[in-house]
Amino acid sequence: MKRESWPADLVSLPLIQEHVETLVAASGIGQKRVVQVSIALEEVVMNIINHAYAKTLKGNISIEFEDHPRQVVIRIIDGGIPFDPLGVPEPDIGLDIMARPIGGLGIVMIRKFMDGVTYERSHDKNILGLVINKIE
């Protein structure tokens, strides 16, 4: 298992994405899926910056990566306040243009693109797990 950390800041986002994209591509997952992983990862990282660390403004985001024969597992870990993105209700995508809320689509994409998503609060950390199957 590989583990690396970055400051929870917008400037870290491209660095975290580059790190994960490299690992996911090396595991044999195709380019289209690599981009989907990167999009899901952005949603998770932005949630951490905007919600988990909203009040403290300081902290780290750690990435753990596991390459298994049939799947890869990415864990995104932060030490902010408890925040479970899976508990956030999804927006009603049937509403017309003026009634549509402008937020909330991140979790829709995480759920759609990932083969598994888990949330755990352990030892004062938020641990969000993303599972991607190698064979679709």
Binding site: I39, E43, R100
Partner: peptide
């Protein structure tokens, strides 16, 4: 365009709402 996240969708939706108005 090869990549769009919810941050991008948000900007697009906001633009569309303002044009619509």
């Amino acid at each position: 365009l090869e990549y769009i996240s919810s941050a991008g969708l948000r900007v697009i939706l906001l633009f569309a709402k303002k044009l619509h108005a």
